[in-house]
Design a protein around this nucleic acid. Sequence first.
DNA 1: ATGACAGGTGAAACCTGA
Length: 269
Amino acid sequence: MRVVTWNVNSLRARMPRVDELLAEHAPDVVLLQETKAAPEQFPHLELAAAGYTAVDHSGGRWAGVAVLARSDAPVEAADAVVGLAGSPVQDQARWVEVVLDGIRFISVYVVNGRHPDDPAFAHKLDFLDAMAARLAEVRQLGPVVLGGDVNIAPADVDVWDPAAFAGGTHVSPQERSRLAAMLDLGYVDAVRHLQPEGQAFTWWDYRAGAFHRGRGLRIDLFLVSDDLVGRIASAGIDRDFRKGAKPSDHAPLLLELAEADGRDDSTDP
DNA sequence: ATGACAGGTGAAACCTGA
C-alpha cells in the first residue's frame, strides 16, 4: 500500500502538480494539508477525474486538510472523523480521520505558532496536547497512519541551521517534548525509523533559493502505530515535486507499507 | 544585517506561512 502526505499550499493552485503526483505514484491514500479552500470550493470533480474520492475538513481561505482514496475503494464522509476534539482553534480546519483497509488514516496540519511570544504559540501547544489525547485514544482502536505538517523539527539534525532557529518556534523544548510524548504512546516516526541519522528535509522557504542551498526543515512526518512498523517498506520525499512549475514549498512524503502477510505488493500486476 | 516568495482576498495592501 502506497501512502502520500503533502502540504500542497493551496490545493486549487496545486492541482496540476497533484494530478502529476497521482499519475506518477498512483498512491492508494493521500493525506493533504493547507488545501486553503472553502467546502464548496474543494475540487472534488477534478479529483474524481483523476480517479480519487476525498473527504475534507475545509475551513475557508486558510488551513484545510483532506484524505484522498482511489475511486475503486472510495472514502465516505459518513465514515470520517472531521475535526480534533479539544482543539483550541475549532474554527480552523486541521484534522480529518478515515479508516481504510483496516488502518485509520489521519491528516493533520498543526498550528504554526508564529512566535513564542504570540498567542498562537499557546494555541499550538494546546493543539498538540489535544492531538496527543486523540492519538492515545485511536491507538486502542487499531492500526494508525498519521501524516501531516506537524510544524515541529523533531531534532537539531532536522534544521538546516539550528543557530538561526534558536529561541524560535518549531524547535522549542515545549514543542519537541510534546512530539516525543506522542511517539511514546506507541508510534514511530517512519522516516527516522528507516534513516536513524542525517538530514531528510521536507520544507524549504520559497525565498533566497533556499531549496537549492539545502536550507530546509523536516517538519512533515508520518507517525505510524508500532503494530505496523514491520510493514514499513520505504519512506521518503520525492524531491522532484519541490522543483519545476509552481511547486509547493513542501515536498510530498511517500510511505510504502507491505501487505499484512509481510509481502510487498507494490509490484503486483 | 536585511530581505528575499507564494497564495488568498479582492482589486491595493495586508495577512499568513515557518
